[in-house]
Design a protein around this nucleic acid. Sequence first.
DNA 1: CCTGCCTGTTGCGTCTTCCACAACCGATAG
DNA 2: CTATCGGTTGTGGAAGACGCAACAGGCAGG
Lengths: 269, 269
Amino acid sequence: MGDEPTDEGDAVPNQAPAQVQSVDRALAVLDLLAQRGEVGVTELAAELGVHKSTAFRLVTALERRQLVEQVGDRGKYRLGLGILRLAAATTGRLEVTREGQAVCERLARELGETVNVAILDEGSAVNVLQEFGNAAVGSRNWIGRRTALHATSSGKVLLAFADETLRKSVLSEPLERHTPRTVTDPAELRRQLDDAVRLGWAATNEELEVGLTAIAAPIRDGSGKVVAAVSVSGPSYRLTAESFIDVAPRLIAGAAEISTRLGHYSANG
Amino acid sequence: MGDEPTDEGDAVPNQAPAQVQSVDRALAVLDLLAQRGEVGVTELAAELGVHKSTAFRLVTALERRQLVEQVGDRGKYRLGLGILRLAAATTGRLEVTREGQAVCERLARELGETVNVAILDEGSAVNVLQEFGNAAVGSRNWIGRRTALHATSSGKVLLAFADETLRKSVLSEPLERHTPRTVTDPAELRRQLDDAVRLGWAATNEELEVGLTAIAAPIRDGSGKVVAAVSVSGPSYRLTAESFIDVAPRLIAGAAEISTRLGHYSANG
DNA sequence: CCTGCCTGTTGCGTCTTCCACAACCGATAG
DNA sequence: CTATCGGTTGTGGAAGACGCAACAGGCAGG
């Protein structure tokens, strides 16, 4: 068996070919459940390319630890509450998620758009906190998602204020194109990063996904180092270039407030 | 091999004896990391009762999916950001966590104690949201923890307003003792539940852990059904019986506010 | 310095354990 | 009442996970 040689079950970065097969499959189950909500054993099996019984035993193993729960008595499966215990331990490490929550909620309400906080992690931006605005009806979940530093507003901010080594490393490698508008010219990106440092905010206009625009501002910790970025994102027809003049200052103010909570003494005023 | 027959690696409720060994071990790793923060391969191996190499392969499998990450280049391991993606999908299902956040944060700040929201899940109370108060310095993480319905304030509230079938089922089974003060007499518990319904709040006084007192109030959804409970907990010397008269109304007001956000029309005034 | 001991890491052979198969069961529908 | 769809369970064969032992760095102390 194993007709397809280098076929990963799901979207996993190319890495070593799965140290422990069954564990990897179980984690793939979690990912699938996270994406789709409720999934049945048969569908899981088909998706993983394994037999029904195998999929069943995997979910049972997950259920034992309450990472997965069954909906009816003989129904589909979905993520369980045990995940929350793990998540609480994870966010406990991240001061930003605790301190940023209230501000993000307020920003999301005031601006009516989705607000995210992202941190830098191994060469990409990862969203760790998200609040939906009223206007954002069909917004997706971005938490935990890794995005390229050159194609998101948060990424640009994080990169702009990062060590010179990271800047150089990103600018020296080819910049992957996501949409027709993605910035793939290193010189242009460098210019935008310099702008970000000067202005205190950065934007992306349909550079990651067509129709999606975002603006981001830096969050600093007690030592003044940029540890995160807060961003507002929404459809391009609402977040126009003209609206930036209104949104950017409020975003910067929010970022400054979170920074203050993290012990940063902001010398504005 | 396998000297200890019925020995579970960790604190897992007695269930079927692990359908897929490696998956269960991997999940045990996650639990350990959640409890201790950063753990090395050797320690994990010792804890699981397996060889170092086995533990190593397990964490590597988890790392692949970003559920764990390595601290240094050759360092210990801790929970990774991938957990957050899963958690976001989980809490997305729970309206209470979204709507209750702001209120809990305010309550925690005003009262200075730890505030939790718990829901009913398969015969136990599970905390799904937690906010720390200023006074709560050494407070632990309770999120995701399942607690007995008769030994916690949230549990009593949830039980008091639950279907009669659940009430009967709990009251008919022996009530496990956790501390000298745990209510183990069904008649006494029934009395307290009736009080909870009448007063709109319930308390526990060193019934789950010595020195720990808590008060809880019900949260209702649009249909008026009690779907969760919000609780304040703190050391018994601060949360005295005399303070209840001050704390309870504020807690009830907070619960009502969350209920309103969930679409409940509260007819108080 | 270099020795000893502590980590995390890797190749290998064996035996465990997981997996595919197929049969089973309960519900739903036609 | 039968067909078909879901999830569940017993079993034999073999894939694959496990323990072993040796390796690779880092650190402390002789």
